[in-house]
Write a protein that binds this DNA or RNA. Structure first.
Ligand SMILES: [Mn+2]
Ligand SMILES: [Mn+2]
Ligand SMILES: [Mn+2]
Ligand SMILES: [Mn+2]
Lengths: 221, 221
DNA sequence: ATTATATTTTAGGCAAATCTAAAAATTTAA
DNA sequence: TTAAATTTTTAGATTTGCCTAAAATATAAT
């Protein structure tokens, strides 16, 4: 009935890779989990026996419905704990991932549901990623676009940074940009695709095309 | 360097049994951990090799200084998480132990120290047990006595319930007695050693000798 | 002081999760 | 369409944490 921590990590990784590029391979999964392809094959056979993945040797694999549900639950745990760490223990988003990697495996369903209540049912984690509800349903996310696609002069809210590296975090922290920050593009420079932006209706600053591409914003709400 | 969850559980159990009756035996430890004596011997050999216990075959064993420090750290984690669960997630003390049993094994020292801060550096957990500080030092506890030893008419504060079973908790919950409750003995009945007590300066109630013996109180503070 | 009882340890095994090296299957390229 | 390269799987080990059954040791009772 209860899934081991290692199995949970495998299911979660499959889920993420599947969401990203529709399909997963043994090698990719091994890389994602810092393990070896042979170990993945071993684990896959066990997960299949438990009905958590559909697997045919040499042909590929994917999560079963049960596997998907299990994965989503862990992702929910992970993201809710990240909220707790950032909002209440005052960590910043670059630090919380590791800790959440452990916290996500706690087995009490009631604990996580109460935590959700305590946090006020947040809809996204500190990185802007959506948090599924207790039944595993992701609420429709508000449409988000990469910052370079935003029309000049139109105000928008930062909803995600992706991918989240320590380096971009450091840069954005310095420029006072985070999830929830309001941004308006003042000027687009065709020369290098850098942008001059206004941050929270105050000072202006310039970001490179690379930085801009990693910032996702939403014009609604 | 890092101690496995199972080893942490062993160290903690040894610590508790040692504190209780000064010494621990293989059988006791096996019972406490719901495992077999042979498994204890195996584990003891490993813990000795790592310098966490002092062990001589057939002669007995005890925690080394390192082992003691590790155990205290886990106990700190356990009790701080119990505080969080009761004070912020609104669980009651009978429910938190299991969850804390998992939470205590999280590896981030910084996490637990921030949690401590978030909680306001509590000195005892919801069961009245003392919480060591980040360096593993237990602050001197205020003197506590079993309720039957309290003088009639002298007001005191409930500081602990021991042992904590679900049954006594249920009873005390019904009578609105918990850690921090103020109690004054109004009458001691010699016939069965039951006590008539006043709870929080309000209504009076009667508790049996057995119940009274499990309630610890402090007159100071 | 023997003998009986209880405790503790060894011997041998098993399941989970990993690994390396080698074999098998698939995919890509010539 | 065969050969080469890549991917995936098997075979065989290892480590950790636990088990049962049997042997060793210590303790208690005649
Ligand atoms: Mn994890
Ligand atoms: Mn996240
Ligand atoms: Mn535990
Ligand atoms: Mn406690």
């Amino acid at each position: 009935m209860k899934i081991s921590i290692s199995k949970e990590n495998h299911l979660k990784a499959i889920f993420h890779l599947e969401s990203d590029h529709g399909t997963v391979t043994t090698n990719e999964l091994a890389a994602a989990l810092h393990t070896r392809p042979a170990s993945i094959t071993d684990m896959l056979k066990k997960l299949q026996k438990e009905g958590l993945v559909l697997y045919e040797r040499y042909k590929g694999f994917s999560l079963s419905q049960d596997g998907k549900m299990a994965a989503v639950q862990i992702i929910r745990n992970h993201r809710l704990w990240e909220c707790f760490l950032v909002d209440h223990l005052d960590f910043d988003w670059s630090q919380v991932h590791e800790m959440a990697e452990e916290l996500e495996h706690l087995t009490s369903r009631k604990l996580i549901d109460r935590l959700d209540f305590f946090l006020g049912f947040p809809r996204t984690d500190p990185h802007g990623d959506p948090i599924p509800d207790s039944d595993g349903k992701f609420t429709r996310q508000i449409a988000q676009i990469p910052l370079p696609n935003l029309l000049t002069g139109k105000e928008a809210t930062v909803t995600a940074i992706r991918p989240q590296t320590d380096q971009i975090l450091e840069l954005l922290q310095h420029k006072k940009i985070k999830i929830g920050t309001r941004i308006t593009i003042r000027k687009k420079f065709d020369f290098d695709d850098s942008l001059e932006i206004e941050v929270d209706g105050g000072a202006s600053t310039t970001v490179s095309a690379l930085v801009a591409k990693n910032i996702y914003v939403s014009v609604q709400k």
